[in-house]
Design a protein around this nucleic acid. Sequence first.
DNA 1: TTATATAGGATAAAAAAGATCCTTTTAATT
DNA 2: AATTAAAAGGATCTTTTTTATCCTATATAA
Lengths: 145, 145
Amino acid sequence: MRLTRAGDYAVRCVLYMSKQKEGIVVSRNEIARTMDIPNQFLGKIAQQLARSGIFEIVQGPKGGFRLLISPAKLSLLDVVEAVTGEIFLNDCVLRPDSCARSSKCAAHFVWQKAKNKLRETLHEATFTKLVKEESCMTQSMTLGD
Amino acid sequence: MRLTRAGDYAVRCVLYMSKQKEGIVVSRNEIARTMDIPNQFLGKIAQQLARSGIFEIVQGPKGGFRLLISPAKLSLLDVVEAVTGEIFLNDCVLRPDSCARSSKCAAHFVWQKAKNKLRETLHEATFTKLVKEESCMTQSMTLGD
DNA sequence: TTATATAGGATAAAAAAGATCCTTTTAATT
DNA sequence: AATTAAAAGGATCTTTTTTATCCTATATAA
């Protein structure tokens, strides 16, 4: 697995949205501008996030995206996998038939274990936590919001 | 990180060599044939493994590769990273300067943590262990050997 | 009903990965 | 010393994946 640009953009996008008041529609233009994401490309990525039920898309003026899952329940894993598909580290773990060896290959199990740990780590990281940590790190920010 | 075909081939190659008597030269042709690796491509991969000190290359008739590190001390991580470079899951962990956000980005730390765990898992898997597990799995093999 | 903002299909451009061609070098064998 | 097998290494090509954009259609607020 390797976080693609698209996956990175998706995380930035959701991270930005997680900082806004819950339930509001956040404009795509605004997200793209603030988070340095090519506007049209974000459109494509948004489709995938919408299909996964992470947010819904509102068209028209004042359109944009509305988070459907609270940042407290939304993990890095959810967002990344919405864009890149289920994480896997090598073909033969996800598609055992692609590798004639998989049944008798010990490496296979190591990859599987590694994959599970990776997903676990990303699953524990909710966006609420990320936002919180981030605000701790930025000393120059006003503390009172 | 995602195990590329090249990385997979490298693992297969070293796995095969680990089953042979220690210290002998194993022919590239033989490895390629047995492990289903494109011969020439294996040549390229071998160069990287050699540069990393994992094995040495012997030219000429009866040439091939000789493991320089005992399978007991050689891990999946060593072999994979010899071919793909140090494992990383996203750009901003390995090259923080590539991402203007890295210093204030909480996701950054999650990726770093995930990366460390992944490397740990792969580091624990030595080729001796892999060979051993593999022979357990293959029930149809002669147990004696 | 007009202006704004996103959807979504098609396609292009760029980058990465996989593979092979060909000439050169090395070393065992005769 | 000559021959030959086997691999090195540079160059190049193909394929796949990723990134990005163009353009027309659609939805909705004002």
